[in-house]
Amino acid sequence: MGIAIIDYKGGNVQSVLFALERLGVQATLTADHDVIRRADKVLFPGEGEAASAMRELRTQGLHELLPTLTQPFLGICLGMQLLGRHTEEGGGTDLLGILPFDVVRFPAAPEYKVPHMGWNNLQTLRSPLFEGLSGEDYVYFVHSYYAPVGGYTIAEAAYPEPFSAAVQHENFYAVQFHTEKSGPVGTRILENFLKL
């Protein structure tokens, strides 16, 4: 029961725990397969480098468990990218393959620094995850790699070309930005997820 945050040493999970705490929601940080399987909702945050994150997921057998989950699931930042098939990061790494995208690096361009760092607005919102929000709403991004736009895209952002700011396949939702660091807009998205 309750909310499980997947613990795979994938970076700063404390901020996600605090964001839930501000909403009055208790969550459990865990890698225990039974606890994760029984949770009402699963959060999958992540920061850092994809290859080491995948190694840790494999070590804990989570690479086999996660694709079988059926409750509402929210990947955040690297936790979104890991749901794809493959990433260019670290010379090329196979990912969980839950969604059919390949993660690529932003090309370096004089006016477009990498990482894409800061507040950008969400466009073409098409999910209950974004209920109450509009294209004027900004969220906080920090990433050097991105998932291209596809049939799975439920929100886009542009840098300068459109990329997937959020994706969905069945119960698997994921956002490239940091909901827990995106002010009232991010809080609203977390609340919307908790209502799914």
């Binding site: 404390q14 705490e21 501000r22 920090v142 940091h178 827990e180 660091k181 995106s182 002010g183 009232p184």
Partner: peptide, 11 residues
């Protein structure tokens, strides 16, 4: 840092 992170919802 812990006290700030608990309250603050921006980076």
């Amino acid at each position: 840092v812990r006290d700030v992170a608990r309250e603050l919802d921006i980076p």
